[in-house]
């Protein structure tokens, strides 16, 4: 069956090989496991919400402006990543590269802001070991930041492969899967924005 597949030219490249189809489906299963992973970190953070010990409270340190810039950068990168896939489905390799590189640049900007935010907190006396609350905070936001770092490296490598081998059913399935990963990072960030930052500010306000 895998050898005798006939596709009209409208079938997206990433769906043309059986391996590609199975890998994409398998990656969705992996994303389900990632949701479970992050949910345990969210549970930890929310349970430890008031355990600030003698350290600073989130109300004292969280700064809305920086968080909003990070949110905007990551949300926009998710959008441009979607456009990149749209271009790939039009068999437009140049468009794919342009939009993916914009995506990676926005991701790097996000990461830069996050590192700056962490350094600021540490300077103001809130580090990983300051209190249970800050442990929870740095672990969940740090795990997400690590995912973004891996995403940037991964997509870069895949783009190099596309540059060398062209858009084939094999390479486009890889691009598509890495785009799912990138969108997923924004999904997680929506909940970090809501559960970590907004909730932290609301609960420590009163």
């Amino acid at each position: 069956m895998a050898h005798a597949e006939v596709h009209d030219h409208n079938t997206p490249l990433e769906y043309q090989s059986e391996t590609g189809r199975l890998n994409i489906l398998g990656f969705w299963v992996f994303l389900g496991a990632e949701i479970a992973l992050f949910s345990t970190l969210f549970a930890t953070y929310l349970v430890l919400m008031y355990r600030t010990a003698d350290g600073p409270t989130p109300h004292e340190l969280f700064e809305l402006k920086g968080v909003l810039i990070e949110t905007f950068l990551l949300l926009t990168s998710s959008f441009t990543c979607g456009i990149a896939i749209h271009e790939m489905r039009r068999r437009n390799r140049k468009g794919l590269f342009i939009w993916m590189i914009i995506t990676l640049a926005l991701g790097a900007g996000f990461l830069g802001y996050e590192i700056y935010e962490f350094v600021t907190y540490v300077h103001e006396g809130a580090a990983l070991g300051t209190s249970a609350f800050w442990s929870g905070f740095f672990v969940i936001v740090g795990t997400h930041g690590l995912h973004v770092t891996m995403g940037i490296a991964w997509i870069t490598l895949i783009l190099i492969q596309v540059a060398r081998r062209g858009l084939t059913p094999q390479t486009s399935a890889k691009v598509f899967i890495s785009s799912l990963y990138w969108h997923f990072l924004d999904v997680v960030w929506i909940f970090i924005f809501t559960a970590v930052y907004l909730t932290g500010m609301v609960l420590h306000n009163g």
């Binding site: 969705w28 299963v29 994303l31 389900g32 496991a33 949701i35 479970a36 992050f38 949910s39 345990t40 969210f42 549970a43 929310l46």
Partner: peptide
């Protein structure tokens, strides 16, 4: 279905 199930698990855990 997989994502909905994962979301259910996440809500139960949190």
């Amino acid at each position: 279905g997989n994502i909905l199930f994962a979301a259910f698990i996440a809500i139960v855990i949190v």
